[in-house]
Write a protein that binds this DNA or RNA. Structure first.
Lengths: 71, 71
DNA sequence: ATAAAAAGTGCATTATAGTGTTCTTTTTTG
DNA sequence: CAAAAAAGAACACTATAATGCACTTTTTAT
């Protein structure tokens, strides 16, 4: 899967808040196993799971029209 | 589920491009059933499914730090 | 007003995400 | 360095997303 930037945004935010995976799991209600799998790049979370993590981390999910030339 | 803004972003973009659900299904590789379910508000797509739709629509998914007071 | 197209609904099946647990590896701390 | 904490990996089980299909309702065009 190619969610690298999303994975990294979650991870970076979690680390900048100095929250452990376990703590984020508790805060967000997402199972620790799922979080570990996702952060280690082997996950494909549902939008609901992603949103729980974002909510807990004070992140918002935005869809915007791409302005760059097709990569 | 509470993905209203995301659902609407997808729908609005699809309509502004004048693409039917069937055409978007073909373009993105997401099954028509899944797309219909999602757009009608009864879905919880995986990130991979959401990304396929966004890629086909020229949308990008962004995570950013919320600037508002906790709602 | 009617036909055609698009959108929405429901269902059975398959694939896989989420959960909970245990274990291993890595990182941090004293 | 050793102990503790955190991160990563692997498993069986459960829940549910994705698929493909058939059907109904709504919208659009003639």
């Amino acid at each position: 899967m190619h969610f690298l930037s999303i994975i990294e945004a979650i991870k970076a935010r979690r680390e900048s808040l100095q929250v452990t995976q376990k703590a984020l799991s508790d805060l967000s209600g997402v199972a620790l196993g799922a979080l570990k799998k996702f952060e280690s790049g082997r996950g494909n979370p549902t939008l609901s799971t992603l949103k729980k993590l974002c909510d807990a981390l004070g992140l918002e999910i935005t869809l915007s029209v791409k302005k760059t030339i097709n990569p």
